[in-house]
């Protein structure tokens, strides 16, 4: 009977499985195919020549990729350091205030990312909220705070904070209190507890948060456009340009493929390292 149930379950999942496969994998497959086509063609009927991949190296697109990856990496690291104390407080200390904090952070997600970034842009631009007031009141004129790499990283940190904070808090909540007390009892000081107990036991949360922030950051574009004023071209920008102004689908497709492969490999590596069940709160 159980066996039959399992079989029925399998068969009834086929239709939806097919739809998901077609809607998720088919576009990816088309992109993969396009990436092998000669330059500037709009059909898949040509012989593959992989010329777009050569362009990636020859025309400096790899620089955009490096910018994207390194800014994602830096912002992820910053996010980790900012969010750890906050997440620790949410998981272990704040009690009722945790809910207030959660609602506050989630509320910010209700407003579109681009609108929030425009808000920052208006705040930080020359003659904007900050600099304008400062100049009107003190007469000191500052150079624009926008249009540099630092502000792009600030944007990434700002936008992706919830994606680090919540998984991290979830991860820290999983650290059993008695394990921390036992470590102290056995002679560990605060830093040793952090190093030997807190960090390893909350590693699933750390992994999920870092992965989310890195992956989202590597594919992000609005921050560099709206705050960075394209002082740095990121890979997502290149991909968009290739598909639109550039009218070069194979180039866009190949850049996408490179990004997908790098991020996909990272994500698979990360997810293999963690037990998703424990992240979802199942007791060990």
């Amino acid at each position: 009977m159980e066996k039959l149930d399992r079989k029925l379950g399998f068969f009834s999942s086929i239709p939806l499985g097919l739809i998901l496969a077609i809607s998720f994998l088919a576009p990816l497959f088309v992109v993969a195919l396009f990436s092998t086509m000669p330059q500037k063609v709009f059909s898949l009927g040509q012989l593959p020549d992989f010329s777009s991949y050569k362009l990636f190296f020859n025309q400096g697109y790899y620089k955009s990729l490096l910018w994207s990856l390194s800014m994602a990496l830096i912002s992820t690291a910053i996010l980790f350091f900012i969010c750890w104390p906050l997440a620790f407080g949410m998981a272990k200390v704040f009690k009722k205030f945790t809910l207030v904090l959660t609602i506050a952070v989630v509320m910010s997600l209700f407003v579109s990312e681009n609108i929030r970034l425009f808000g920052w842009s208006l705040t930080l631009m020359k003659g904007g909220l900050l600099e304008g007031h400062l100049r009107a009141w003190t007469g000191i004129a500052l150079p624009s705070l926008l249009y540099n790499t630092g502000i792009i990283i600030f944007g990434l940190v700002y936008v992706y904070l919830p994606f680090m904070l919540f998984p991290l808090a979830q991860g820290i909540a999983m650290v059993p209190e008695d394990a921390r007390q036992a470590a102290a009892d056995l002679g560990a000081n605060r830093w040793q507890i952090l190093l030997y107990v807190d960090l390893p036991l909350s590693s699933p949360g750390i992994m999920v948060g870092s992965l989310l922030c890195f992956v989202l950051g590597a594919g992000a574009m609005s921050e560099s456009k709206l705050l960075g004023g394209q002082s740095v071209i990121v890979i997502a920008d290149d991909i968009e340009t290739a598909f639109t102004f550039g009218q070069n689908w194979p180039l866009g497709a190949s850049l996408s493929m490179i990004l997908i492969i790098i991020i996909g490999a990272l994500a698979i590596y990360g997810i293999n390292k963690i037990d998703l069940d424990t992240v979802m709160g199942r007791k060990r």
Binding site: P176, A179, Q181, A182, D185, R284
Partner: peptide
């Protein structure tokens, strides 16, 4: 210089 065996044992699972 004292030490306790916990009710939950509090072994480090990792």
């Amino acid at each position: 210089p004292t030490c306790m065996v916990f009710q939950s044992l509090a072994l480090f699972p990792h």
